[in-house]
Amino acid sequence: MPIDLPPSERMTSGHLACPGCGAAIAMRFVLKGLGDRVVMVIPACCWSIIAGPFPYTALKVPVLHTAFETGGAVASGIRAALDVKGDHETQVVTWAGDGGTFDIGLQSLSGAAERGEDILYVCYDNEAYMNTGVQGSGATPEGAWTTTTPTGSPKATRKKDIMQIMAAHAIPYAATASIAYPEDLVRKVQKAASIRGTKFLHIFATCPTGWKVPSEVSVGLARLAVQTRIFPLYEVEDGERYTINVEPKGYLVDAYFKAQGRFKHLTAEDLERIQERVDHGWSRLEALARIA
């Protein structure tokens, strides 16, 4: 069946993303899901550049560009302002990268979530500080090369589980999504938009440049991340009700890792260890979904 998405188009051509940019694809889908009553907050991230310099913009929604760590707070302020003006319909959406979410912006995100701000916080995760030239972040996966976790000493620790962190805030809605599953992604955006309170969307967005993969595999690699259970698609409601949305085929992780230059130094033992971790994570997720 053909993929069915809302026809609206609020991203323009001519933006400055690298070819095959997953963050650009993700933005397109999210805007399709949001409709026209939107104010967007973009803390420092690739999209600070992608959207274009003064006096231009590639987005046909109002956008407030802001400092790196302020995604949660600025959105809170806009929400408050709209509320006091009597506008409870416009969605306030923060669009942040993984660095601005997992690392420097985590505090302000946590604050907004704890206060239950009526905002949608979208993290497009390309697993490193790509805008500044591929430096490691809290979202960088174990074993990955980045310019600050060079091949001689690739990232030794695991990717931060931002979804668990957000679930622990008991916000009404948190979900993962992938550029490879646009209908699921748009459905989640629409669902989030229909809920009052803090909503969090964690979108897997391939970075061909930083991951050292050809641009054309951008979406395919994101799909592989889902199918290998490395990035499962699921929702968490009120911090406790887990639903798995796409049943992965459960391919071995090798296919995903071997396709990427940033992992090319990994040994068979490394992959075995990672496979075990992925299997364990999946079992845990399944168990959580069963409890729900």
Binding site: S13, G14, L16, P55, Y56, T57, A58, K60
Partner: peptide, 8 residues
């Protein structure tokens, strides 16, 4: 912004 990026 005063215009879109479509000039690019």
């Amino acid at each position: 912004s005063l215009d879109t990026m479509e000039w690019n």
